[in-house]
């Protein structure tokens, strides 16, 4: 059973989130602040952590960094950031510190269970390519998208992001994934995240331009690895 930790200073948010996730069959624990979260995580080593950025005392980012420190070389927990501030920039800082995704307040129980489900599969290891590098994963993902098998690439993209959350390519591909399945807003959100991580990363800029201005004839920019390495 997957273990989930919810860190939020708002009692009602904690309670409703726990209720929504309990129903999905996860083992859910809650923490009221950063310090408590670290204490619980030390013993339990949760698979997914839902972390509010704005916490009393120790901030969300500090908590995130401490969690990563405690975790050390163990299997990486999937940290999803909860933010009330809509700007991508705050989320990107957290991503650089090791978070894998973010969700913006206000959200619905459905949105919470979806984002947890989307990220937990990566941790479960079912689809994970063993002994692969970030670049190797990207090549596989791009190949699959080319063969019109975009739907199956989600876990690999998530894995790639969890391997190197500080690099823009993964988020760009996540944007491509959402664009292909028809969720333009989500696509734009991840293109922007990619662009915020590395403002010079061209495929993300091209994708933002295209997605925003509707050029149906233009193809998506996958950001081929050999392009980068050459």
């Amino acid at each position: 059973m997957k273990k989930i930790l919810i860190v939020d200073d708002e009692k009602n948010i904690r309670t409703t989130m726990k209720m929504a996730l309990d129903k999905q069959g996860y083992q859910v624990e809650t923490a009221i602040n950063g310090e408590e979260a670290l204490r619980i995580f030390k013993d339990e080593r949760h698979d997914v952590i839902l972390l509010d950025l704005k916490l009393p005392g120790m901030s969300g980012i500090e908590t995130l960094k401490e969690i990563m420190k405690i975790n050390g070389q163990g299997p990486k927990p999937q940290v999803i950031i909860i933010t009330a501030h809509g700007s991508i920039e705050t989320a990107v800082e957290a991503m650089k510190a090791g978070a894998i995704d973010f969700i913006q307040k206000p959200f619905t129980p459905k949105e919470i269970s979806n984002i947890v489900e989307g990220n937990i599969n990566i941790q479960s290891g079912n689809f994970i390519e063993k002994d692969t590098t970030y670049d190797g994963l990207l090549i596989q993902i791009i190949e699959q998208i080319r063969q019109k098998k975009t739907r199956g690439t989600f876990p690999q993209i998530k894995q790639a992001i969890s391997l190197a959350p500080q690099r823009p390519e993964g988020y760009n591909l996540l944007g491509v994934y959402y664009e292909k399945i028809g969720d333009r807003n989500a696509a734009l959100k991840y293109y922007r995240a990619s662009n915020a991580i590395d403002p010079t990363y061209k495929p993300a800029i091209e994708n933002i331009d295209r997605a925003a201005s509707m050029h149906p004839d233009k193809s998506v920019s996958l950001g081929e690895i050999h392009d980068e390495t050459n």
């Binding site: 409703t16 989130m17 209720m19 009330a84 501030h85 206000p106 959200f107 619905t108 129980p109």
Partner: peptide, 20 residues
């Protein structure tokens, strides 16, 4: 507006769970 989002989240979460 930011501050309003947190209680709104609580309300929305609760009402959606209630709805189910």
């Amino acid at each position: 507006s930011h501050e309003l989002r947190t209680p709104l989240t609580g309300v929305q979460m609760s009402i959606n769970l209630l709805d189910e």
